[in-house]
Design a protein around this nucleic acid. Sequence first.
DNA 1: GTAACCTGTTTTGCATACAGCCCAAGTGCC
DNA 2: GGCACTTGGGCTGTATGCAAAACAGGTTAC
Lengths: 218, 218
Amino acid sequence: MAGIIVRNLSDQLVDLIRERILDGTVPPGQPIRQDALASELGVSKIPLREALTRLEQEGLVTSQVNRGYVVRSLRSDEAEEVYALRLKLEPETVALAAIHANDADRQQAIQASQELDAATNVHGAGVGAFNRTFHLALIRPSGQATTTLFLERLHILSERYVRKHLEPLGRDQRANEEHGTILQMWLDRDTLVGKLVQAHIRKTVIDLRRELSRQSEN
Amino acid sequence: MAGIIVRNLSDQLVDLIRERILDGTVPPGQPIRQDALASELGVSKIPLREALTRLEQEGLVTSQVNRGYVVRSLRSDEAEEVYALRLKLEPETVALAAIHANDADRQQAIQASQELDAATNVHGAGVGAFNRTFHLALIRPSGQATTTLFLERLHILSERYVRKHLEPLGRDQRANEEHGTILQMWLDRDTLVGKLVQAHIRKTVIDLRRELSRQSEN
DNA sequence: GTAACCTGTTTTGCATACAGCCCAAGTGCC
DNA sequence: GGCACTTGGGCTGTATGCAAAACAGGTTAC
């Protein structure tokens, strides 16, 4: 009963294209040519379009009738809103999850943390994905499915801002140190972990705000 | 510059099927046969599947690989979570929207309210859709796109519970009286409207909780 | 010079067609 | 009789092909 996950093409394409958008391979504002991308990936348009439909729901692309899909641009007001929402939802949910987590959940969180560490040290691509996996491992055991879904969306949305503005500064290194203490408190089922998460998010948003305003000066 | 809205088939199908699910035409637990439904609606599977993909994101259907889509069942814990989320997000957002609303927004809110009244009196189908439109008209001018999107999802999710458990009791009649005072305060840009919205949601969740527990006694 | 219009090309959106999976009823084997 | 196995029909998921919309470029009218 290990996770033998059967997924259809659309599912896989969602992850693939999402990563391309988040890591900047497909830059904001760029139209997505369906036939071209489909043949590049060796699939047809049908599953590709289903994947794009989902990415549109996630807020990474927009579509206009008969004009197709375009990678959404970054907007500082969106970043502000996303972080405001995370502040409203995430601390409480992480605390709840800490209480509810069973052994398997806890094991997953530990593993996600280790993988994130490893990825950060190598500093190859995909740190963001590991970061998301880690955070969600702290959230999902809350048992609040809808909240978890929303938070997953918010993490996806915030990732482009972090990658663009904070990763280049090596800020994620510091963030990872915080992750360690958060995980520890979470494993201790200490509900004060919520405060820590709150502080973690607040720091990020402050750093981000500084970078965004710095940039808009230009 | 009137809203000449061009929509593709998938878009229209989303609304159509959503209504069918919300009004119970397609009951929870029922599998959705793609070929059958497509030919019934006079379209092919392609746009239908894209519509179902979106409805899955909305939480109205689930899919399993090679086993297709099934209308999601109602769960009282989902209802609790959805209303908890609405309480966290909606009052504040409505108050913000009251401040930010321009004349067009205000006109839309008034119109949505009138249409809701009319629909309630006739008490034909689709009261729920008008109810949703009204509430969203009070939310959207907040300028918080992501929050608005989340709240729209939450309204869609909560609708089935309201329709199943509260509408039969004529409870929506009372709710509509509250809508009038909410709209008035909103138009007055009185941020205390948030408190009213909060009370409105709380009442609903209390009524709903009573009905749900009453039913689980059986 | 500019604006409206035409025309070929690109691209989307959808219908049709088909391969493969799932499930249930039947079949053989013990 | 009960259990593994097979086989057929139904359904999903994907590829291919086509109609129609959008775009770009040049051309004409003013």
